[in-house]
Simulated scan of single mutants.
Amino acid sequence: MATANHSRSKSFPSQSHPAIESVEDHLCRLRADSESTSVCSNLASLKNLHEGINDLIQMPSVQQTLSQGNWINELLEGSLKLVDLCALSREIVCLIKESVQDLESSIRRNKAETATSSDISAYVASRKKIAKMVNRSIKNLKSFNHKSTTDNDLWTMLKEAESHDLSVLKSVLILLSGENEKSSKTSWSLLSKFTTQNSRVYSESGAEDLSLLNIQKSTKNMDSKNMLKQLKSSEMIIQEIEEGLEALFRSLVENRVSLLNVLSH
């Protein structure tokens, strides 16, 4: 992660500008809060950060700086990877939501007191498929080069934003996988840390709800009413993550378009 304060480079605007201050403010908040706030809050912070970056890119002095050397090509390469990663995260969220809704529909359709073994088996198979997708996505994150290779303030700022993007999207993927490379206990700790704490999702209870994503065949005797209630709570969390990813995706695409416009001029 990039360090907090840097001296202004000669190519970076020397006078205070609202766009610069906005980006620096959002980066400062992410540095301070990214590990202590929810995934959804971090997604919202990233969206605001990239809206500020988009305003920054519109500045003539910044466009002139970005046109130097191989900067623009490196930034475009990184932005494409981020757009693809965010799009894949959205796809995974959709698959999870569908699997939860399918299990809900099946339980209601059977009108049984408990979920059937076939219902649970189908859900578990879907979760395993999704977990493999998540694991592949996390491994692919190693291909990102988000280290700053220059002491230019603008470059360092943009690469730090990229680093936050990777960190938060990885947290989303870990949360959605319902697993952690160390242990399920660690996974529940992550769930407790990253689920939102607002009127729609309720802190610790939200983590318990989302932990049902790890449902196994051994839970086939769970009371259907309780299972439906927990599935619905999980669905609410998933919906909020989906909305956060959608908003971030749009902001990332807008940033990429702005960078392409700089390249074309």
Rank of each mutant, 00 (worst) to 15 (best):
A4N: 11
N5D: 14
H6V: 06
H6F: 12
K10L: 15
S14C: 07
H17F: 06
H17P: 01
P18E: 09
A19Y: 05
E24P: 02
D25Q: 14
H26A: 12
H26K: 14
D33L: 13
D33H: 12
S34I: 09
S36N: 11
S36H: 12
S36A: 14
N42W: 02
L43N: 01
L43D: 00
L49R: 00
E51N: 13
L56Q: 03
L56E: 01
P60A: 13
S61A: 15
S61C: 07
Q63F: 03
T65C: 13
L66A: 02
L66R: 00
G69I: 07
N70H: 13
G78N: 15
L80K: 14
L82W: 02
L82Y: 02
V83K: 07
L85Y: 03
C86K: 00
S89E: 04
R90T: 10
L95T: 06
I96C: 12
Q101K: 13
Q101F: 05
S105Q: 10
S106E: 09
E113D: 13
A115Q: 01
A115E: 00
S117I: 07
D119R: 02
S121M: 09
A122W: 01
A125K: 13
A125T: 10
K128H: 11
M133W: 08
N135F: 05
K142I: 07
K142W: 04
S143F: 11
H146V: 12
T149D: 11
N152A: 06
N152C: 10
D153V: 08
T156I: 15
L158Q: 01
L158K: 01
E160H: 12
V168M: 06
S171E: 09
N180Q: 10
K182C: 08
K182I: 13
S183W: 09
S184F: 06
S187Y: 06
S187V: 02
W188G: 01
K193E: 11
K193W: 05
T196H: 05
T196C: 10
N198W: 04
S199Q: 12
S203A: 15
A207N: 00
E208C: 07
L210Q: 01
L212H: 04
L213F: 11
N214S: 12
K217I: 12
K217P: 04
S218A: 14
T219L: 10
M222G: 03
S224T: 07
S224C: 08
S224D: 05
K229V: 05
L231M: 11
S233E: 10
I238D: 02
I238T: 12
E242D: 15
E243H: 07
G244A: 04
L245S: 01
A247F: 03
L248I: 07
L248A: 04
F249K: 13
S251C: 14
S251T: 14
L252D: 01
V253R: 09
